[in-house]
Amino acid sequence: MPQHVRGVVAHSKGEPVRVETIVVPDPGPGEVVVSVQACGVCHTDLHYRQGGINDDFPFLLGHEAAGIVESVGAGVSEVAPGDFVILNWRAVCGRCRACRRGRPQYCFDTHNAKQKMTLLDGAELSPALGIGAFAEKTLVAAGQCTKVDPAASPAAAGLLGCGVMAGIGAAINTGGVGRGDTVAVIGCGGVGDAAVAGSRLAGAATIIAIDLDERKLATARTLGATHTVNAKETDPVEAVRELTGGHGADVVIEAVGRPETYRQAFYARDLAGTVVLVGVPTPEMKLELPLLDVFGRGGALKSSWYGDCLPSRDFPMLVDLYLQGRLDLNAFVTETISLDDIEAAFARMDQGDVLRSVVIL
């Protein structure tokens, strides 16, 4: 029988969200109903509410989530009722050209649940990133569920579902940070700080965190930054060169998504170094670089999609590192809140007051 649960819905561009009753259908073939335990408040949810993603209102917000599988549809073998899972928004198809070449982390045909959750009046909801986890229960594709060790805190583990994975993956998977490398991270929000933590996990010798906010730089130091640069006071390119023997960093991770900071990343890297763009730009942004500099400096200019992660591989590994005390996911949880506190959490996030607010259900 369909279930009625509480969820956070954005009805129109820029309007405050509302907690409403939503209808969650029984899972169909290949689908799963998950009882959500925790869900992080991500900038992407705010972008949905502001109409910055698309205009498919009404949206059921929330996507950085962990919970318990409640029921499964026909043909589901990946998970079973009672499993503790992290939700992801890139369920791989296994059939596209990327998957067939053994690169499922680049899957070009990721998918979501086929059925729609609705409001009581039958209006179909668009779940954020195909998840919609600011709700007591949600319907997703089975491939969007990754089983992990249930000893993990749901509030911490759920953050791997988006921002923390994006940052760690940008460093390890996309940037290929290795032992002894020098790394600079521009932008120390949740994704940037995760890139700092990922660089530390990978064994980088020098990790330079760059931001305009001293509070964020202080947090970056606790997560592994060996040096910090306040870009309000110091030219970040010159600072990175000074801290790397005049050469520039082996890997520079841009976690802001702006042309100005991308140029800084480009010129702050060493010859043959790597730039990783994980910050998300807006459609109107343009980048201009001298083509001779692109050629002459060599190396690689990369974009990182979801940290180039493969959830089935990366989520269990990172949860294990967390449980071993080698990855402090708890440090990303600034506060825990209820479904009714989402609007206030958006305001705190916009002002830079939190790393992550996490809804506990």
Rank of each mutant, 00 (worst) to 15 (best):
V8G: 04
S12L: 03
E15F: 02
V17D: 01
V36C: 05
H43D: 04
D45N: 06
Y48V: 02
I53K: 13
L60M: 06
G62V: 06
V76E: 05
V76Y: 07
F84W: 01
L87F: 00
W89G: 01
R95N: 08
R101V: 02
Y106Q: 14
C107W: 02
F108I: 13
S126L: 04
L139M: 12
A142R: 01
G143C: 06
K147E: 04
V148R: 00
P150Q: 08
P154N: 06
A156D: 02
A156W: 00
A156G: 08
L160W: 00
G163P: 03
G167E: 14
T174Y: 05
G176Y: 03
T182Q: 09
V185L: 13
G190S: 13
I210E: 00
D213E: 11
D213L: 12
T226G: 01
H227V: 13
A239H: 07
R241L: 13
R241N: 13
L243Q: 08
G248P: 02
D250Y: 03
P259S: 05
Q264F: 02
D270Y: 00
T274C: 09
T274F: 05
G279Q: 10
M285E: 14
G296N: 14
S304A: 12
W305R: 14
S312P: 01
F315K: 02
M317H: 08
G325M: 04
E343R: 09
A344K: 12
F346G: 03
D350N: 04
Q351M: 03
G352P: 03
G352N: 09
D353I: 10
V354F: 00
I360L: 12
L361M: 14
